[in-house]
Write a protein that binds this DNA or RNA. Structure first.
Length: 414
RNA sequence: CGGAGAGUAGUAUAGAGGUAGUACACGUGCUUUGGGAGCACGAAGCCCGGGUUCGAUUCCCGGCUCUCCGACCA
């Protein structure tokens, strides 16, 4: 993609309506634009990152044998009355049709939709287990949206729901999802700072598990066992004041953001919707359920919170909008562009995702924008590099670059 | 939802009871090209409603919006 053609522009000043690092950088670099508190538009650069994250998630969901579906965002009140969450779910967006005076819900989560759906397709033990996931927009009427992408009123979530005939099967799958989540956060570049965290389990389980990433931008407090590399959420520290694994009492207090959670719902939703199956002995039994969520916006914001410096974002390669940022520095005769165009076309032909800064701007401004946008590899073409018959390659993580031939360059970044 | 702060051009800000200035961005022309280039000219602005006042963008009240702290967060 040519930068002269890209829809968004970089902004030099920090926006006055954002305080969080992730929002400041993502807005300034042109990844997102704020519509209102907790609601953002995704611009071409931002959508590219979003799709990279989506694909990481989708790949892991497929490995978990998840089948992808897309559930309704607009939901009937009756389903929420059935579970009692019409009254008890405090961030529920409810609204009234002006014509029919019918009340609706904008879905904050999808147990109320997927449980009745599952009921239509799960009737026998032969239909179990089942694993269904979606990547879809959620709406939550947060009393206070905050921290840029970390807590929004509209956001995209990957939610996986599993259906089982017995607890052993649920437990086994739950463990698999836990491992898959570890892969996901590793792949997304935040594995080192992300802890499996024991949290409140609700009425059916002793614990649920959260994945908490250490960052001052987070709003949760967790207690880490450095021996086991797991943590306990402060909400249960009263009853669980030692490491659940090794019993260590010396836990380290940290601030973190919840980037994912896994939860054994058991029969919490199958009961109100009558989601049952016939077992091998013709006995009718409740289906057991698990749910597993990851918020994409929050994950994207968290990655920025973790990976940036004073000049801008430093994307992990797995989620970067492009692999290489090709920068043309023209000379007074205007004779560099031809070579830069050629290199751009070679990169495209070699299937290297490249953003080409072909704009008529000073070198300093292009470098500053490149640092802000944060593409992993910066490739400079200038009079200096052409004289040597080479390119200058610099990692966004490093201070200086090196001159390298095109052939070696393609190898170097792969 | 409670508390605090803030709303001035596309963006970021300055400012005064007498209708507004700067920087960046933008347009035109020239010049320039390795860390946010230069000159000239140009276009563009006081959140909404009420009150006080001869006069309010400025002071007061209310609203709306945003940010932060707290509460809340299956």
């Amino acid at each position: 993609m040519k930068q002269s053609q890209i829809f968004s522009k970089t902004i030099r000043d920090n926006p006055k309506d954002e305080e969080s690092v992730n929002a400041k950088l993502l807005v300034r670099a042109g990844y997102v634009e704020k519509v209102m508190a907790g609601v953002y538009n995704f611009l071409p650069l931002g959508l590219r990152v979003f799709k990279k994250i989506e694909n990481i998630l989708r790949k892991e969901m497929n490995l978990l044998e998840g089948e992808e579906i897309l559930l309704s965002a607009l939901q009937p009140k009756e389903n929420w009355l059935a579970t009692g969450r019409w009254e008890s779910y405090d961030t529920l967006f409810k609204f009234l049709s002006h014509y029919s005076k019918t009340e609706y819900v904008l879905g904050p989560t999808h147990e109320e939709i997927i449980s009745p759906l599952a009921k239509k397709n799960i009737v026998s033990y032969r239909d179990l287990p089942r694993y269904l996931f979606q990547i879809q927009t959620k709406f939550r009427d947060e009393k206070r949206a905050k921290a840029g992408l970390l807590r929004g009123r509209e956001f995209t979530m990957k939610d996986l729901y599993s259906f089982h005939s017995d607890e052993a099967d649920l437990d086994e799958y739950y463990e698999k999802v836990q491992k898959a989540y570890e892969h996901i956060f590793e792949k997304a570049g935040i594995g080192d700072l992300t802890y499996l965290t024991f949290a409140f389990g609700g009425s059916f389980s002793k614990y649920s598990h959260e994945f908490q990433t250490l960052t001052p931008a987070g709003e949760d407090t967790i207690y880490i066992c450095d021996t086991c590399k797991i943590a306990v959420n402060h909400e249960i520290i009263g009853e669980q004041d030692s490491c659940p694994k090794c019993g260590n009492k010396k836990l380290r207090k940290e601030t973190a953001v919840e980037v994912g959670n896994i939860f054994k719902l058991k029969t919490k939703f199958s009961e109100p919707f009558g989601l049952k199956f016939k077992d091998e002995n013709d006995q009718e039994r409740n289906v057991l359920m698990g749910c597993y969520g990851i918020g994409l916006n929050r994950l994207m914001g968290t990655i920025v919170e973790i990976h940036h410096d004073e000049n801008g974002i430093i994307w992990p390669e797995s989620v970067a909008p492009f692999k290489a940022h090709l920068i043309l520095i023209e000379n007074s005769e205007g004779e560099i562009k031809k070579s830069a165009d050629e290199i751009y076309n070679n990169l495209l032909a070699d299937n290297i995702e490249v953003l080409y800064d072909d704009r008529d701007l000073s070198a300093g401004e292009k470098f500053a924008d490149a640092d802000l946008i944060g593409i992993p590899w910066r490739v400079v073409v200038s009079e200096k590099t052409l004289r040597e018959g080479k390119l200058e390659l610099k990692s966004r993580k490093k201070e200086t670059g090196e001159l390298i031939s095109y052939d070696n360059f393609a190898k170097a970044i792969n």
